[in-house]
């Protein structure tokens, strides 16, 4: 089980800030494929990965980052702090 979090417009498109996901995905990219296949709102949110960033266990990560032993994955647009 994995906690999957969404922020900013990703959260708005998917319609919830977080959910528990039952998955055997080996990498972030595999998880994205599983989510995309679920419903249109996921497919829409993940339609352009170049417009998205990912954090694994609260550290910035890559699409090919492994998910073994991971508890939390977050998807969000490029950050706009400062």
């Amino acid at each position: 089980m994995l906690d999957v979090l969404y922020f900013a417009w990703v959260r708005e498109r998917i319609g919830e800030p977080r959910e528990r996901v039952e998955t055997g995905a080996a990498t972030v990219a595999d998880l994205v494929d599983e989510l995309r296949a679920r419903e249109d709102r996921y497919a829409l949110a993940f339609s352009d990965l170049s417009a998205l960033r990912v954090a694994v266990d609260q550290e910035l990560a890559e699409w090919d980052s492994p998910l073994q032993g991971v508890r939390e994955v977050a998807f969000f647009p490029p950050m706009t702090g400062g």
Binding site: F7, A8, A55, L60, F76, P77, P78, M79, T80, G81, G82
Partner: peptide, 14 residues
């Protein structure tokens, strides 16, 4: 610090 806060600190402005 400013440069990194802009694009590496997890904030989003609406």
């Amino acid at each position: 610090l400013m440069d990194y806060l802009k694009s590496r600190a997890p904030f989003w402005k609406k």
